[in-house]
Amino acid sequence: MGTNGKRGLDDQMKTVIAYKWARDGERAAVREDGSVDWRNAKMTAGEDDPAALSAAKAIAAATGGALVGLTIGDGDASWALARGVEQSVSVTDAPTLTDNAQTAAVLAAAVRAIGNVDVIVIGDSEQHPGVPVTLAGLLGWPAVVGIDSATARDGRLEIVRKVGDDHQVLSLATPAVLGVAALSAEESAPGMKELLAARKRPLTKMTLADLGITVADAVSNRGSHLPATKPVRVFDGDPTLAAEQLVGALRADGAL
């Protein structure tokens, strides 16, 4: 493989798929006072993570290198293992963090501990838009995020992303961080057979102490409130009347 004097993608190199395992915000209930009831929110992988995994698999297949799953907190390692990842690492005692830089710091330390990592592929989540980019910053690696897909070619990464009306194809040397944004929901989740197979695959558990780091949010949370939404003007009741009122309001507003 071409190296250009830099570290290239070779057999010893690893591609890490970093995935989120967190409470599903869509299942959270918001109370009248703006506080959030998380009791019904199951833990789930990030919605961009399946697309990130596809890209990571494509890269690992193209390079012949190993693919390693990585999650933090009480992450369910079987998520990656049941989707064809051969080995996974979990930083079990990482707390829930508000500061994306702290999350990135845990991931960066885990990547260093895994060693010989050439590429990190991570879901470019709407909820945590600072994680992939700060992870790259902490490692001092280049990053491209908001990407649709990626593979490896001639010792470099080949990335596709949409910018305006165009698809751009980019070439990037490794090591690098790629943030993948999903275009749609996962097509087919693994079945029972894959889930059972996942249990036999190796899972390495690490703690923050193993990694030699401590993390803490340097932000305090003063609580939450309902958004001060501009009051929506709702017309209901008789459809004919409601339609007339709406058209009148849109004319008055200059929208028509």
Binding site: D99, Q127, G130, V133, L135, G137, L138, V144, G146, G179
Partner: peptide
């Protein structure tokens, strides 16, 4: 902004500056 390229600049700068990184 949330623009991918702008966020990459932000992440690189924040990591070196030691900033807390907050979304949305």
């Amino acid at each position: 902004s949330t623009a991918p390229a702008a966020r990459v600049l932000l992440g690189a700068a924040a990591a070196r500056r030691g900033s807390v990184v907050l979304p949305a």
